[in-house]
Simulated assay, not measured.
Amino acid sequence: MKRQSIPVSSKKSVASGFFVTDGDSFWFLTCAHILTGLRHASNNWQNWNQSITLHAAGGRKLVIELFQGDGSPLFSWLHDSVNGKNVEDVVSVRLSSNQVKLFHDYTFFELEKISNPNLSSMVNIFGYPSFDYRIQTNPQESTKKGAVIGRGCQFLQLNVLSEDGFSGGPAVFEESLVGIVSGNLGGGAVRAAIVQMSGIESRLFI
């Protein structure tokens, strides 16, 4: 069975990511806060990691450079907390055909099959909350299931707690991509925040 997510590491943190496709193009996705160490990232590129490492099963690794020589980004990024309302926090990096071949045993979620589940629908989140790239070459993917209990501006709330390491992983409903795990909402409640792909797709994949 193909894995739904992949563990990633940077100088800022260890977390998760995943892959999407529209048939002709392929992208890797994760959360911006993984690359900056800041909950609310900005376009001050000095705060960003220069690269991110994807750790595939069996010890395979791919280092993705995030900036060109002139300092301009090689990724698309959506700002978290736009106008103080939206939860976005998402980065996408276009992959070459050779890079895609390295991940033949991982799911590439189809953008034309994005799901928008109703309240009370059960959604699975995937990631690597206990991953340590220094000692693990074949980490086990973890999953949690929670019901949709609320909606915000382009995000869903689940009645399950995300853990460190789930950030950047996919949220899935009936095998279709819902969005990306972006941590937990505040206020002490058990509410994982899922950025909905349906709300950001047109701006993220350009």
Score class of each variant (00 low, 15 high):
M1P: 01
M1S: 14
V8D: 08
V8M: 15
S10I: 03
K12Y: 05
V14N: 13
A15H: 10
A15K: 12
A15G: 13
A15S: 15
G17T: 03
F19Q: 09
D24P: 02
W27Y: 15
A32E: 12
L35N: 05
A41Y: 05
S42F: 00
N44D: 15
W45C: 01
Q46N: 11
W48F: 10
S51M: 03
I52Q: 06
T53A: 04
A56V: 02
A56C: 06
G58L: 07
G58M: 03
I64T: 05
E65Q: 14
Q68R: 14
G69N: 12
G69W: 01
D70K: 07
P73H: 04
L74K: 15
F75D: 01
F75P: 05
L78E: 11
S81I: 08
V82E: 14
V82Y: 10
K85A: 11
K85D: 03
K85H: 10
V87C: 06
E88A: 13
S92L: 05
V93K: 02
V93H: 01
L95V: 05
L95P: 04
N98K: 15
N98M: 08
K101Y: 08
K101S: 15
K101H: 09
K101W: 01
L102P: 06
H104P: 00
H104L: 09
D105Y: 03
Y106M: 09
E112R: 13
N116A: 13
M122W: 02
I125V: 13
I125G: 10
F126W: 15
G127T: 05
P129M: 06
S130K: 13
S130N: 13
D132R: 11
R134E: 14
T137N: 14
T137G: 06
S142K: 14
K144D: 03
K145F: 07
A147I: 03
G150S: 13
R151F: 14
R151Y: 12
R151I: 00
G152Y: 07
Q154L: 12
N159W: 11
V160F: 09
D164M: 10
F166W: 03
S167H: 06
G168S: 06
G168M: 06
G169N: 08
P170W: 10
F173Q: 04
L177R: 09
G183A: 09
L185N: 08
G187E: 08
A189F: 09
V190Y: 07
I194C: 10
M197R: 04
S198L: 00
E201C: 06
S202E: 06
R203P: 00
L204G: 03
L204V: 04
